[in-house]
Design a protein around this nucleic acid. Structure first.
Lengths: 328, 328
DNA sequence: CTGAAAGCGCTTACAG
DNA sequence: CTGAAAGCGCTTACAG
């Protein structure tokens, strides 16, 4: 309890029964205006607020949202965390933060979420097994994959329209005169990596252009090392399309270290539009993922499912836009 | 509850009473080995785990740690969040993440923490009023200020020895031949800004050197703009000591934009040793704040206070070390 | 070591 | 609209 005082104390002071106090605070029940005022005054005087645990025990509901995150080193995700926290705070929900170190969330993480009977789960950059999904379904806990999808499985997902975005990027680079290009992916099996490559390759193919693909890991170091490798081979492409910004910054640094001029000798396009992409010395051309809009759609769905669980799934895809800067 | 099944169900299957099941799971009570095994087997079979809310209601304790954070845009803090989450996970504690947008945490944030009766509170880059502090004390909730202190008030704080660090930095820069230097602070009233300036100025004074002080805000943009302002005045100092790394990166970018060579024409030292300080094109000389060690000390204290509340206060100061790179 | 009973602070039918 | 009663799933004295 938040302090020593409970509904009974308030009831006594207000001269009503304890259930009446409960009715005032829980809402949805009819209480006369007079009684309500008496109760609220007494509660105010005593500094009462309902015990969340007793409440949860009875209602089997909580006002806690589980947020699972992996890549805290990519500035995109702390930003996402912040936005979710602010949004949900306004709605009276709190965030249980779960950090996972695997691409697929682990049993212990799920146990935590279930133990606290979270009202909803948002996974920002990881996936989960079918079994785990069932655990959530069974408990009617709404689940959103944020910025991820899983092949052949239905989830409610919120992300950017990666196909459309990467097609646009390909067209943009071709129009800029690029022909021999490189695509650097993040972890190979992530939907974002796959989709971004797919749209990109489709357009190149249509223009009868090939491209080189390199695996990396969505990290600065990964982008840096991959670019180094490419540079060492002495085959500088006319453009790099990099699956996220933080890797693209690594690519830019590797190029700069080797005195390869951007955009004169090669061009670089990232994805996300993290703050750093706008820093003057990077000034990275990228595709904006509109975090606010993505967060809003996610919150809207979660709230609706909390209100009435349907288990409905859908792939929400926000458009986003190309942010043209100095690397192209 | 995590699923439909409770202690009574387990009791029935195991052929014991419900309190016996509770004794097996709560620990600290004596249960015969035979009974324990029966109960655990039944629990396993049914997939039982104790309801945290019923438990908290009775014990008036939770296994939730409240973590309050402001500066998610400074990569230092997401890293801190991650470390705390991993540490506490191992100990069976979960993290309630609270984002605050003010230097002093707000009433609503405190209410959330109290509502969930968190076992402990860690505030990473904000402070709190005396009244709020009392609220936590009254409820015997241990509180740690991480990387912050409050003038004239006793808190348990964990941070770096800023005075010693900034003295060393001053000596180091003097030894490098710098004489007219600039100190760029973060928010003026933060303990880190104040202490880092203090140690720095002490040493300069001893060497009869003056310095210019500029206010900024611990952000990249702040560092960038402040440096721009200084450059425009045409007074390039021989060195910048910048109160944190993310601002220092802004300073470096401003210098580079103006073709001012670092370390030839001026030198830059930051504070934190965030990952980005090690990126090859920044390669920022800085003072390392050893996050792991700071987190460990914090966790240790919180656990001890959860075990037996004393309300003891202390200022733990980790040494850290100078990381010499290419900006000096 | 174990069971029967009380009680944590709420919500929610059930009456009136 | 409001009170008396039951019950959510646990823990914890109290007996034995």
């Amino acid at each position: 309890m938040s302090n020593g005082i409970n509904a009974k104390d308030v009831a006594k002071l207000a001269g009503v029964s304890q259930p009446t106090v409960s009715r005032v605070f829980f809402g949805g029940a009819s209480v006369s205006e007079k009684t309500r005022k008496k109760v609220l005054a007494a509660a105010e005087e005593l500094g009462y607020s309902p015990n969340e645990f007793a409440r949860s025990l009875i209602t089997n509901k909580t006002r806690i949202i589980g947020l699972v995150m992996k890549g805290v080193k990519n500035p995109f995700y702390p930003q996402v965390l912040k936005e979710f926290t602010s949004h949900f705070k306004k709605l009276g929900y709190s965030i249980l933060f779960v950090h996972t170190s695997n691409d697929e969330i682990q049993k212990e993480d799920v146990e935590t979420l279930l133990k606290y009977n979270v009202a909803g789960v948002i996974i920002t950059d990881a996936t989960l097994s079918l079994k785990v999904t069932e655990d959530f379904k069974k408990n009617k806990i709404p689940l959103v994959l944020f910025n991820r999808k899983v092949e052949g499985q239905n989830f409610f997902t919120v992300g950017t329209n990666n196909l459309a975005a990467s097609r646009k990027i390909a067209e943009y680079l071709i129009q800029k005169g690029c022909s021999d290009m490189v695509y650097i992916s993040g972890e190979r099996n992530t939907s974002t990596s796959i989709e971004r490559e797919k749209g990109f390759s489709e357009v190149l193919e249509k223009h009868q252009l090939g491209y080189q693909q390199y695996d990396s890991d969505f990290s600065y170091e990964g982008g840096y090392k991959t670019a180094k490798k490419i540079i060492q081979k002495g085959e500088i492409p006319s453009a790099f399309f990099v699956a996220n910004d933080i890797m693209a910054l690594g690519v830019l640094d590797a190029l700069r270290e080797n005195n390869i001029l951007v955009p004169a000798e090669t061009k670089v396009v990232g994805f996300d539009n993290i703050d750093m992409a706008g820093w003057p010395l990077y000034s990275l051309t990228t595709w904006e993922q509109p975090i606010s809009e993505m967060v809003e759609k996610t919150v809207k769905y979660v709230l609706a499912e909390i209100d009435e669980y349907t288990g409905m799934t859908e792939n929400i895809e926000i458009k986003g836009q190309l942010i043209e800067r100095k690397t192209t």
